[in-house]
Each structure stands twice: as structure tokens, then as C-alpha cells.
Design a protein around this nucleic acid. Structure first.
Length: 576
RNA sequence: GCGCCUGUAGCUCAGGGGAUAGAGCAUCGGACUUCUAAUCCGAGUGUCGCAGGUUCGAUUCCUGCCAGGCGCGCCA
């Protein structure tokens, strides 16, 4: 029995611990306001039917307190009093003066709360206790989410939009995990489509050319240099293909070429810090007759019809602007058929949320996939699609011209070579996913103060440096519970602690709204506050209480910086 | 024609219905015998594309328009 009680208690306190301290203060204040409203009502000073939702916000202006409530503004109409008057009445009924340092009515009728610093010292303790778990929540506990991204065709090198998708998808996955999602990541390999034929014929032509056989390059073939390079490798590995019957040779070349490209993509992505839980082959769907099966299901449900020698999906039933061909008049499948089968496969595996990240050229595709999801009996919002916008590259202020037709484009690999993993990831992550991105290659490759990546990493390295020297000086850092944190009263120290307190909510909002750039910005803001602190306050060489408290403060900053850099997939260097 | 994205300081962009709209860069001026100056501090700049609507309150939400980017295949 006591065992059970103990379990229950730890479960409850575990949940409470996962609630951010900011949220905790807000709830406490909301409770105080609620009591005040009830008191004001029973004393006859305010009359109203129901207590509305009480919102607390952190004011932009510091002079407006730590938290503010607009309750008097929203209730003014119901209580039939001017907002400021209502606010004064509410304030006069607020009891807990121990928790509150000061309460003021300000502006058009806001109630501003000043809390003092104790809760901020608790933030530091929480960070030390939770370590790299700090900021995590169980918001999405029990939700199974499948995140599919990049899914570039295995017939060429990945481009910069693929790279953007990789950075955003990978960081989103990390954010989702922190927010409690049960998330899996997947890369869909289009290894069965028409473009693999084009690729195979291009590769074959180059192979024959390498072998010295005069051979015309296919008109619609892929002109990129990489095809020739692959052909040379293949020729060295396997000159015997010349002797095979044409059809068989093409098939071997196709499979070999795709395998090479997939391996290359996997390696490039790994170098970018992105690894998938699963690489899902389109061919495997064909082998399992998944396309036939899903079509049979759609047929059963009455969403299939024949017309003009083709088989159609009645996607207009679900708001698509036209119906879609599933089987072409030549008997082959369209891309969408395999994709429907793939998404059905995801659903059958028990995922309750499918999130796809697509390039901007696929936005017209959303309606038909959502239609398919619904036709299969799932709700429309089971599938969510994040459309990325284009990336333009700038070098020395000039836009880099790219021509796919001429085989001239900057690949993901080029990008990594030029600016490195950390800068590339940060630049992709610092803008909101759906905005067009100007990627400044010159800036990203600079190792100067203008580069935000180094700015953040430098903050981390500085902390490590101080802690290293503390160790060399044999300074014993007292446990946070023993540290005299109340001496942390400088403005910059307060600001820094408030920023640390924000992390759980930042992660929650970033997860809810699919906004990884919030974390990138948070990292920059936190680094900026730390650098400011560094220049205003000394750590080592101060009196014992201050030194101990600041050591604990910077240790907390270190934990949080390490956490956000990890979410961004960027290294946290101990020296620079 | 239909659809998606964008429009905020000279440039690149933040800004979850709140109070005086922010940051970096660029420009100018300051701070290293002291824990890494890849840093910090100070200085000014806005018809938040335009017009309506909802609201006590709109850069934020809705509608229409204007401008820019990109899509609209029995390709993938």
C-alpha cells in the first residue's frame, strides 16, 4: 500500500516537474486572480456570471512586471465597469502577499505582477536536476508520429532544398521527442518510377561511351557529371556487362545505379547529422502487391472508376479539384498510386499522425493525398504536410545561378564542403520553414563574429573555459542546493535566468506549431545574454558567495546551450 | 484562371490579440595589465504592401486588392 502511494506520489511529482516553472507561476497567479474574483463577487463589488479563462503573459517591457493579466480588460464589458476600476477591485482582493512582491494596475487596465527572484533560482535548480532532460515535456505522450522527409529521387545528387528539408525534418524530430512524441523518421526511396528508367539509360549510355562504344546519349537523359563518374566506376568494376542482353544489362545497371545513389545520399545525410529510422523502398510496395491491395480497398469503398482506358481515383469526393489517374492507359501505375499505398502502410503500422515535409513544387499534391487518406477511412488531419519554400544561394551578394538542365547546380555535398555541417544546419533552421530563404554562403563560411553559429558556439566554449579554469584553480563548486543563489541580483543575471526559464515553453510551442526556427532564435538570444553577462560580471575571482552562485548559473547556461545545440544538431565545442 | 508562399528599418529577418514594433548586418563612437575582443556598451532609422471587417485593443485573426517567388501532367 505504501509502495503504491509512493509510486503514485512520484508519478504525480514527475508530472509536476515536467510542467515548466513559467507555467507554474502562471497557474499560481491565475488561481490568485480567481480567488480575488470570487471574493469581489461575494462582496458585491463585481457582478458576473462565470469566471472566464484567465490568461497570463510575460510583458515585453520589464517595467510591466514579471507577468501581466488582461482579465480586467476582457471582463470590463460583463462587470459594467471601466477596465482600470475593475482591475483595482480585483487587486484589492488579491491575498498572497508573500508570493507577490508587488501588484500594480497599469496602462488601459492590465494587472502587473512582480514576483521577486526566488522562482528563478528554482529554475537553476531544476536545470541542474534534470540535466539534458530539462525542457522536455509529456505534451504529446502516447502519440505515434511518422515524420517523412527529404525522400529525394535516387537518380541524382541531393540539392539545397533537400538539404533544407533534412535540417528541418531532423530538428523537428528532435523537438518532437523532447515534447513527448513517439516519433519515427522515414525516407521514401522512389526506386521504381519512370525516372529510374531515364537514369538507367543515361548511365548505360555513359557506360558504353566509357567502353569506347559510340552511343547516343538519350535526349531526356541526365547530363550531370556524376552519371559519367558512376559509369567509370561501373566499367572498372564490371566490364562484363557489355556481353549481357540489352534488357538484362539495363536492369542490372538500374539497380546498381540506384544502390549507389542511395548509399551516397545516406552518407551525405549522415555527414549532415541526419539519420533515418528507416529507408522505405517503393519497390518493396510493388513486390508485396501493396498498390493492388490499396486500390481494391478504394474500389470497395466506391472511389474508383474507369474512364478513357485508365483507372481513376475519385479524389474530388474529398475536395480535390480533379480526379486522379491511378493506372495509366498503358497499364502502368502513376506516382500517386504508390504513394497512397505507402501512406496506407504507415497508417497500418499504427501511426496516428503522418507528417510529411515536401518541396514547394509538390504543394498541389496535398489535396489528392489528403483525399486518399480520407477515402481510406482516416480523418483529414491524420496527414499533415509541411511545404518548404525555395532556397536561393548568395555568394558575395550575388545570386548563384543554377541550371538543372545543364547539370549545373549546387548539391548538398557542395554546401557541406563550402560551409560545413554546423553553419549549414543553422542557416536552414534560422528561418521559418515556409518562408523563402536567402542562404548567404559567404557569411556562412566566415569564421567571424558575424556568423551566428560561431557566436552561439563561442558562448558555450567560454563557459567551458571558465569551468576548466575553476577546476585548475581547484575551486570546489558547491551543489546548487547549497549555493547562495539570492546574491544573483544583477539585471543581466535576472534576464539570463528568465531566458533559461523559457526553454520548456519554447520547445512546446516549436513542437505544436512545427517551428524549429524558434529554437535557433532561442539559442542566439541565450548566447547573446550570456556574452553580455560575461562582459558585465566576473565569475572567478569574486567573493565566495557570488563566485559559487555564478558558477552554478553558468553551469545551468551550459546545460541549456548544450540542449538547444543538440536539438539543432550542431556541435557544442569545448574550446574554440 | 486556380492554388501555395512571401511583403515589417538601407539589407537579411524575428515578432502566439496587448502597453512605446525588435535583432543581426551596414554606419558612427567607446571598452582588453582582469575568467577567450569569434565578445561587450552606446548612438537612429519604420505610412508593419493597400483598403475594409471582427475586437475594449490588430503587425498578429477574416475578406478583398496590389506586388514578388513558385506550382497547376495518364512526370516523379
Amino acid at each position: 500500500m505504501s509502495n503504491l502511494r509512493h509510486l503514485l506520489h512520484s508519478w504525480i511529482s514527475g508530472r509536476v516537474n515536467l510542467m515548466s516553472l513559467v507555467t507554474k507561476q502562471k497557474e499560481k497567479l491565475a488561481e490568485l486572480i480567481k480567488e480575488a474574483l470570487i471574493n469581489a463577487k461575494s462582496s458585491g463589488e463585481l457582478s458576473f456570471e462565470e469566471i472566464p479563462e484567465i490568461e497570463l503573459e510575460i510583458p515585453r517591457e520589464k517595467q510591466h512586471g514579471d507577468f501581466a493579466s488582461n482579465i480586467a480588460l476582457t471582463m470590463a464589458r460583463f462587470v459594467k465597469k471601466p477596465p482600470r476600476v475593475a482591475a483595482e477591485i480585483i487587486v484589492s482582493h488579491i491575498n498572497d502577499r508573500e508570493f507577490l512582491e508587488k501588484v500594480e494596475v497599469a496602462g488601459p487596465g492590465f494587472i502587473n505582477f512582480y514576483l521577486g527572484n526566488n522562482w528563478l533560482y528554482d529554475v537553476l535548480k531544476t536545470i541542474q536536476n534534470q540535466g539534458n532532460q530539462y525542457g522536455n515535456s509529456d505534451l504529446f505522450r502516447g502519440k505515434k508520429l511518422l515524420l517523412e522527409f527529404v525522400s529525394a529521387n535516387p537518380v541524382g545528387p541531393m540539392n539545397v532544398v533537400n538539404a533544407r528539408a533534412a535540417a528541418i525534418g531532423d530538428t523537428l524530430a528532435r523537438i518532437f521527442k523532447a515534447a513527448g512524441y513517439d516519433v519515427a523518421t522515414e525516407y521514401y526511396v522512389n526506386d521504381a518510377g519512370n525516372q529510374t528508367n531515364v537514369f538507367a539509360r543515361s548511365l548505360e549510355a555513359r557506360y558504353l561511351q566509357v567502353a569506347g562504344i559510340d552511343c547516343e546519349f538519350p535526349e531526356d537523359g541526365y547530363p550531370g557529371e556524376y552519371v559519367t563518374e558512376l559509369a567509370e566506376v561501373l566499367w572498372n568494376e564490371n566490364p562484363g556487362l557489355l556481353n549481357l542482353p540489352e534488357e538484362e544489362r539495363l536492369e542490372v545497371i538500374r539497380q546498381w545505379g540506384i544502390d549507389q545513389m542511395v548509399e551516397m545520399q545516406r552518407a551525405d545525410l549522415a555527414q549532415f547529422g541526419v539519420e533515418f529510422d528507416r529507408w522505405f523502398s517503393e519497390q518493396s510496395l510493388h513486390k508485396e502487391q501493396a498498390l493492388e491491395k490499396v486500390m481494391a480497398l478504394l474500389d470497395e469503398r466506391g472511389f474508383i472508376f474507369q474512364a478513357e482506358d485508365a483507372t481513376w481515383f475519385k479524389s474530388t469526393e474529398f475536395g480535390d479539384d480533379k480526379d486522379r489517374v491511378l493506372v495509366k492507359s498503358d497499364g502502368s501505375y502513376t506516382y500517386v498510386t504508390a504513394d497512397i499505398a505507402y501512406h496506407y502502410d504507415k497508417l497500418k503500422r499504427g501511426f496516428t499522425k503522418l507528417l510529411d515535409i515536401w518541396g514547394p513544387d509538390h504543394h498541389g499534391y496535398i489535396a489528392r493525398m489528403k483525399a486518399a487518406i480520407q477515402a481510406l477511412g482516416y480523418s483529414e488531419d491524420t496527414l499533415e504536410v509541411l511545404i518548404l519554400q525555395y532556397v536561393s544561394l548568395l555568394r558575395d551578394g550575388q545570386q548563384v545561378k543554377m541550371s538543372k538542365r545543364a547539370g549545373e547546380f549546387v548539391t548538398m555535398q557542395d554546401l557541406l564542403d563550402e560551409v560545413g555541417k554546423d553553419a549549414a544546419r543553422y542557416f536552414f533552421l534560422m528561418r521559418s520553414p515556409e518562408s523563402h530563404l536567402d542562404f548567404d554562403l559567404t557569411l556562412a563560411s566566415e569564421q567571424t563574429n558575424e556568423n551566428p553559429v560561431f557566436y552561439i558556439q563561442y558562448a558555450y566554449a567560454r563557459i567551458c573555459s571558465i569551468l576548466r579554469q575553476a577546476q585548475e584553480m581547484e575551486v570546489e563548486i558547491v551543489n546548487i542546493d547549497q549555493a547562495p543563489l539570492h546574491v544573483l541580483t544583477e539585471d543581466i543575471e535576472i534576464d539570463l535566468m528568465k531566458k533559461l526559464a523559457d526553454l520548456p515553453d519554447e520547445i512546446r510551442i516549436a513542437a505544436e506549431n512545427r517551428e524549429p526556427h524558434r529554437i535557433a532564435r532561442y539559442a542566439l538570444d541565450l548566447a547573446s545574454l550570456f556574452h553580455s553577462f560575461y562582459n558585465h560580471c566576473r565569475v572567478l575571482g569574486e567573493e565566495e558567495p557570488i563566485k559559487q552562485s555564478r558558477l552554478n548559473l553558468i553551469k545551468s547556461v551550459q546545460v541549456v546551450l548544450s540542449k538547444v545545440l543538440d536539438l539543432l544538431g550542431i556541435d557544442a565545442p569545448e574550446r574554440m
